[in-house]
Design a protein around this nucleic acid. Structure first.
Lengths: 157, 157
DNA sequence: ATTAATGCAAACATTTTGCACCATC
DNA sequence: GATGGTGCAAAATGTTTGCATTAAT
């Protein structure tokens, strides 16, 4: 596979992935996927976010359909489901389905989320797998703190 | 997993922590704290779990009070709030409030959660803090996979 | 034509809140 | 006695589901 760095997957390729598993590429799924393709990758959209974007796009897709689509796309590893502790599940495009490197830096004040790519956990993962007998398939790392802007706000007050 | 008995914090000490911040040590908070003191540290209790344990202890504390207490205790760093993606927040005693080392290994089949103490993330944390300007206060690492038992079940089928 | 997907509303689960009463300091 | 804290029920949230209708293959 010639996987260039930031080459985005196309709707046609996504359609193929769906059909391989006997799912249909519907207009609704197409529109939802297009939203993720159009977003900067560091955006993490909730079902409600997606629904709102659809509405501003004059699209009348039901919220239940949004939930069902997001869950399906996550089960196919097209989207990644993430929890940031803000009360709802969020999703982002899974750009590198074969590599599990996925870090987030979450500001505890303004809830901003920043992504990171570095990964130094393979060694730790191996160690833990050996000790526990687990077959580890993925890991998730979150750093919590206060972003530069919120630190400044604290200093002012 | 090894359940080493660290010197556990006492109710008296917890009372002091509450009073330092002008919170009262009520009978309800005492009972809820006692549950966490009595649990092996690798148990992660939801509000519903705590409420059920109270009921079996013939205690009639309202569920809203349980929620309010857990949130308060987490805000005081007495408890840690964790999300495992099972639809509810879970809490555990924060044994080492000054050290943020907190790993979980989650079985994607049976939802078993195992704890780990090792930490190799300080270096990565420093690096990320420098690059991002964040003041990092904590981090959270989760490994997902299949535990030994569930792997065996897969092999059988 | 078959089968899955959608839309809607209703159900559900978890958590939060308003308010009168009660307990702790 | 003042100030929080509790209990209850009601509401708010986020998500799922049943079912008739619609659309993709």
């Amino acid at each position: 596979m010639n996987n260039k760095k930031n080459e985005k997957i196309t709707i046609e390729e996504l359609k193929k992935i769906l059909q391989e598993r006997d799912y249909k590429m519907t207009e609704q799924r197409r529109e939802i996927l297009q939203i993720f393709l159009d977003q900067p990758s560091e955006h993490h959209l909730s079902a409600e976010d997606v629904h709102m974007i659809l509405r501003t796009n004059k699209s009348e897709i039901g919220l239940a359909t949004v939930y069902r689509s997001l869950e399906l796309l996550a089960s196919l590893d097209i989207l990644l489901k993430i929890e940031f502790g803000d009360g709802c599940s969020r999703y982002e495009l899974n750009l590198k389905p074969n590599v599990h490197r996925h870090h987030h830096l979450i500001c505890l004040k303004c809830r901003k989320v920043i992504e990171f790519d570095e990964d130094k956990l393979d060694e730790l993962e191996d160690e833990i797998a050996k000790k526990s007998g687990f077959a580890i398939t993925n890991h998730e790392v979150k750093f919590f703190g206060f972003c530069r802007e919120c630190q400044e706000k604290y200093e002012d007050s």
